[in-house]
Amino acid sequence: MKFLRCEGEDFYLEFTSEEKDVLQLLLSFYPLVPATYHRLTQDAQQPKREENQQLLDEALAAQREQNGKAIRALLSEPGRFTETAEASQGRFGRGDLEWLLQVVNDVRVGSWIAQGSPGYEKKKGRPAKAKLRHALYMELAGAFEMFFLGVINGDVPPETPE
């Protein structure tokens, strides 16, 4: 993954065909975090707890729907990606990268949940095959996140100055 340049408010990023395939694969999993994962509060005695939880669930569901539409638009929008012989160059606004971060992190956290939400301690022995797959997706999602964060926050310099 490369950060090529900025033009106005747009960031131009380059992915090898393999990297783009992986990103598309990860995006295809969204949403991966179960809808019931988030709780508004841990306080069982809170007034209107269930009612407020339902409102939160609805808001998050609407957000997921919006992100899902944005993914489909991103992958199908003409002119978004320019293909070269060896790579694919994509144009992203800051808002695009911001929701991509949300989406990719959903896949990361969802992959972690799918592994049984392991703690910090490393378990000995070989993990089950299904868990291994989710562990891989989690790490790949993390790599994309760090790249997007580096671009957004200016920690990754562009390869080609404006």
């Binding site: 988030h38 508004l40 509060t41 306080d43 939160l56 949300q102 992190n105 990361r108 956290v109």
Partner: peptide, 16 residues
């Protein structure tokens, strides 16, 4: 704020 944090899949809650 809890909604905004959970949109980013952070583990956030509100407590009285």
């Amino acid at each position: 704020y809890v909604h905004e944090l959970q949109k980013y899949t952070l583990n956030a809650t509100l407590e009285r």
